[in-house]
Nucleic acid binder design. Structure first.
Lengths: 118, 118
DNA sequence: CCGTATCCCTGGCGATACTG
DNA sequence: CAGTATCGCCAGGGATACGG
């Protein structure tokens, strides 16, 4: 005893904080996108697409729209010719970054990269 | 400058640590299951199903098998009558828990529960 | 009690083509 | 350059029934 949270604690209940976070950043791409924007500070759309390995146009645009709506990223459009658009993190998303970087570190420490064992 | 990681840092590249973690614990249920097992210390299958709100039999069993295979949970079967099975975290999964709890806290601090705005 | 076996369906995701 | 518009796949997830 002492190492457990009370069994009554709402770990995975209906409106659990964890579930709500996962609704925000769940799915295949959002966490990766957030981390890349963070690493770059400010990124243009095309650069972002190149940095997030394997993402398609559709998914990048779609994910960005949702994250903008959810207050995680900011979009700044410069009406030059040709048009330039830059993305950056909101303060809110910024405060989540350290957690995501820890997750990344955990993966690097605990998971060997390996191809398929033949 | 100074606040950025080098642009060359592999944030979301092909074998990125982040991607590998997400392969392990991505999807709709695994993170929640891990946190519930942690909170209980040791849990029986049925208790787990009750605690993870909304999960189905199929998905719980399936997730548990994968996580066992991946070295995240341990299964202990007691051949009593009726049979009893208990799940607990491995040390490896345990070391990830603090990160997941931070994520949960982030959600609780930054996300109001709200139904649909009418 | 603790699951597996099946079947089925939705929506996340992707490919391609096209526009301001 | 920075996206939308469409279409379609298929794997993740769910319901139900059954087995050790």
């Amino acid at each position: 005893m002492g190492r457990h949270i009370s069994p009554c604690e709402n770990m995975a209940g209906e409106g659990c904080g964890l579930k709500r976070v996962l609704d925000l950043i769940g799915g295949k791409w959002k966490i990766l996108i957030l981390c890349v924007i963070y690493a770059e500070g400010t990124v243009r759309y095309g650069e972002l697409r190149r940095r997030v390995y394997g993402i398609t146009n559709t998914m990048l645009a779609h994910s960005l729209r949702e994250m903008e709506r959810d207050g995680l990223v900011e979009r700044h459009q410069f009406d030059e010719m040709p048009v330039r658009v830059e993305y950056s993190l909101t303060a809110s998303a910024g405060s989540m970054i350290p957690i995501l970087l820890e997750l990344k570190r955990w993966g690097e420490e605990h998971l060997e990269h390996e191809g398929l064992p033949s």
